[in-house]
Amino acid sequence: MTTLWLSFLFAITILTLTPGFDTALVLRSAAAQGSRRAAATALGVTTGCLAWGVAVGFGLGALLLASEVAYATLKWVGAAYLLYLGLRLLLKKPEAVAEVAVETPAQQGMFACFSRGLLGNMLNPKVGVFYVTFLPQFIPAGASVPLWCFLMALAHMAIGLVWNAVLIGGSHYFSAHLRRPAVQKVMDRLTGVVFIGFAARLALSRH
C-alpha cells in the first residue's frame, strides 16, 4: 500500500508540474488581477480535480470512457468555453487592457475567478478519462474505490495548490511590470492564442 501511494504521489507531481491550460490560466490571472484572484482561480482548478476524483470514485467517470455521446458532448462544450476565453482576450479593446491595472474587486469578483478555473477543468472530458484510467492503477486490491479516488484526488488538489502558490509567488516579483498596459496587451494576445490552441486540441482529440 505504501509503495502504491508513493508511486502515485511521484506520478501525479510530475503531471502537475507539466505546463498546460491550468498553468496558463493561473499565470494570466496573477499577472492581470493580482495574487488573490489568481489564488481563487487556482482553487477553482484544483477543486475541479477533486470533483472529478469523486465522480470517478462513484463510476460517473466511466461513462465518459464508455459513451461516445457523453464524451463528445462534454468535449465540444469544453472546447467552446476555451475558445470563448481565448477570443475574449484576443478581441479585448486597448482601453479595457489599460483598466486592468486598476481593476476593483467589484469588477472582477473572487467567485468569478474561482468559477473560471472550475469550469475550465470540469468541462474538459480528458481530465475525467485520465482519472478513470489512471487512478485505478494505484488502488489496493479490496480497498474502497470511492474512498481511494477521493484521497488521491485530494492529494492531487493539495499538490496543485502548492505548485500554483509557487507560480503566483514568482509572478508577484514582476507584478508591477506585468500590469503595464503595453505588457498586458501582449500577454492577453499570447494567452488568447494559447487558449484557442487548447480549444482546438480538445476539439480534435479522439475518445
Rank of each mutant, 00 (worst) to 15 (best):
L43H: 05
T23W: 14
R37N: 10
T23D: 13
A31K: 02
G170S: 09
P125V: 03
L17R: 08
T2H: 14
V97K: 07
K126P: 00
L123A: 06
Y81V: 00
R116I: 11
F134T: 00
M187V: 05
Y173Q: 15
P136E: 05
L91I: 09
G170R: 13
R116W: 06
S144Q: 10
V193S: 11
Y81G: 00
C49R: 04
K126V: 06
P136A: 06
T104L: 14
P181W: 01
M122L: 15
V56M: 04
V162P: 08
Y81P: 02
A62V: 05
A31V: 02
A40D: 11
L91M: 15
M122V: 07
G48E: 09
P19E: 07
C149S: 11
L135I: 10
L83C: 04
L135K: 06
K75C: 08
L82E: 06
A24V: 12
G44S: 07
F58L: 08
L151W: 14
Y81F: 15
I196G: 05
L90T: 02
Y84K: 13
A72W: 04
A38V: 05
L83G: 04
G61A: 11
R189I: 07
G160T: 02
E68M: 10
A143W: 12
Q108D: 12
S7T: 06
L135Q: 03
M157V: 08
A176T: 09
D22R: 01
G197V: 00
I139M: 12
L82W: 01
P136F: 08
N121A: 06
C113V: 00
V129D: 13
L87S: 08
F198M: 01
